[in-house]
Amino acid sequence: MVASRRLRDRLAIAGVIVGAVVTAGTLACNSLIGLSDFTVVDDAGADARADAADGSADAPVDAAILAPEGSLPAVWPDKKMPDSTQGASTKPDYEIDVRQTITFDKITTRTWMHADFDGITTFEAARKKCEEQKLQGAEWRLPSRIELVSLLDTSRTTGTQIDPSAFPGARRGTYWTASPVRPLTNPVTFWSVDFTEGNVKIGAASFVRCVKGRG
């Protein structure tokens, strides 16, 4: 904030000096135009929104489609992203309870099922499985997209892309999130995370690992 104000002051001073020198006037204008590029793009976005609002854009409008029960709104990261990949800033740090039923992620402060459910299910069945889960208290739920991404271990060159000591028996395949793919389509689809490939993709029948807790 302070740095930005200083930058702005510097720009203002530069503007005055350059403004006095007629031959350098062109340069000053160029730099000013460069700064206002952000404005131009913002305005383009506003135009697009206005067009979508009056129906003149041919893009899908999802207002008529309702997200099913259990759908999460857009979720933004509230903690650092644990990542064992070379160069990443934050290493994963898990704690497993003595009974080996839950895995606590000390970075994201989420509590995960240590073992997942057997078998692939529909989204609706997955949601119910988490709601009915009573392991160490209730309030289990399907993870959001970014929460499930936080479990990926993309540093592994072979096998399932997850830490096997924190999550033994993890399956090769996709796991459900409760984040719908937006703009909403008919029927509504949900994001899944593929622990075979280490990818984020649109979900079909998937495995289930429930989470609880927030940042």
Binding site: G45, D47, R49, A88, V149, R182, G198
Partner: peptide, 19 residues
């Protein structure tokens, strides 16, 4: 260059239209 997990933290799951 960011890692994939880092770049995914920028994703807006509820995008708005832009030209």
């Amino acid at each position: 260059l960011p890692t994939m997990k880092e770049l995914l933290t920028l994703v807006d799951e509820d995008p708005v239209p832009q030209y």
